[in-house]
Design a protein around this nucleic acid. Structure first.
Length: 348
DNA sequence: CGTTTTTGACCCGCGC
DNA sequence: GCGCGGGTCAAAAACG
């Protein structure tokens, strides 16, 4: 792994061949619901383009981590409206880059636990999420611990778990990237704690946990069954620390200590750094030649509705039913564009 | 030797 | 209640 993860964020653009998908587990049904944000897409796209052409933020640092990209994503999520309203921002002026948007992001939240009701799902889920997020920051630590304890208890005692109290899951968001390697280097250190075969997919899903003490962020990585070159990464939780590798602000948006979840603002992802560079590469590549970046922002963390919609929208572009995206990534995948891939040194 | 990965077993939630 | 699928644990193995 060293050295080479070729990750490519793919984006989907109307004009370009890119597609990205956002998947949100969190609001499966919600996807369908949100409003549409068409302009956004283009806006984002623009941003991306700009960056790329101007070399924007990415270059400056020379390293945009994957997560950085994500940041952007998140950013989108929070600022989608803005974008939407002002889709046209001089890209060159935008410090923030388009980011991870490029990859397909799937945002999700606890759909699993909250079988949300179709209608309320978006809202309720969001609100819940919001609440969680809101508390999240504060609770991060406590919550984390609590969860851990819970887990332990759960395991150790195996029964303590109360039936009613469903364990709450952290907000999650997923994104798709084209990569040869399964694991994206996002600047954080992850420890693999499990792998499971996924139904209807020849590819297994790997489970990773942030190795930083006290940080309960988890992520799962799996390849798309439809397009093996696409890796779907789902992050869950908020980092309670900054990027271990190189704490730095990412482009523009900064994350709060808790990492991506700032409920309010964009969900920011911790700033990965070291890997970033590599990613950046990939990123750049894709940008230039074919411009593939798509983004989606979503975040359960925040005002997800937007993101969702956004996502949805994007997705819909490529596939008829956005809803299906969540459960089925086909739509997402199909949009993905091949680009260059990079291998990065194993971040772990 | 410490850390990470592998992997089978176990637990839990959900749908039938 | 049962089976299925997802998620996690933890011991053993691998790795650096």
């Amino acid at each position: 792994m060293a050295g080479r993860d070729h990750h490519q964020l793919v984006a989907n653009n109307e004009n370009h061949m890119v597609n990205s998908a956002f998947i949100s587990e969190e609001m499966p049904s919600s996807l369908a619901l949100s409003s549409t944000i068409t302009a956004t897409a283009s806006g984002i796209f623009d941003m991306i383009s700009c960056d790329q052409s101007s070399g924007g933020g990415y270059d400056q640092k020379g390293s945009l981590g994957f997560m950085d990209l994500l940041d952007i994503h998140s950013d989108f999520g929070s600022s989608l409206f803005e974008w939407h309203q002002n889709p046209i921002v001089p890209q060159h002026q935008r410090p923030v880059l388009p980011s991870p948007s490029s990859s397909n992001v799937l945002e999700s939240s606890e759909v699993l636990n909250n079988p949300a009701t179709p209608n309320s799902s978006s809202i309720s889920s969001s609100s819940n999420e919001a609440e969680n997020s809101a508390q999240g920051n504060k609770l991060d630590g406590d919550r984390e611990e609590e969860e851990k304890n819970q887990d332990k208890t759960k395991k150790q005692s195996l029964k303590p778990k109360k039936k009613n109290q469903k364990k709450q899951r952290e907000p999650r968001f997923a994104f798709m990237t084209k990569s040869e390697v399964d694991q994206l280097d996002d600047g954080y250190r992850w420890r693999k704690y499990g792998q499971k075969a996924v139904k209807n997919s020849p590819y297994p899903r790997s489970y990773y946990r942030c190795t930083t003490a006290g940080c309960g962020v988890k992520k799962t990585v799996e390849r798309s069954r439809d397009d093996p070159s696409v890796v779907v990464t789902t992050y869950e939780g908020q980092h309670t620390h900054s990027c271990p590798i190189t704490p730095r602000g990412s482009i523009g948006i900064l994350s709060n200590p808790s990492g991506f979840g700032a409920a309010t603002s964009s969900f920011v992802v911790p700033q990965p750094h070291h890997q970033c560079q590599q990613h950046q590469h990939a990123f750049m590549y894709s940008l230039s030649p074919s411009l593939n970046i798509s983004t989606s922002a979503g975040s359960n963390f925040n005002p997800a509705p937007l993101s969702s919609s956004f996502l949805q929208e994007r997705v819909s572009t490529s596939s008829p039913s956005s809803a299906s995206l969540l459960s089925d990534d086909q739509g997402l995948l199909q949009d993905i564009v091949p680009s260059q891939m990079r291998k990065e040194p194993k971040q772990e």
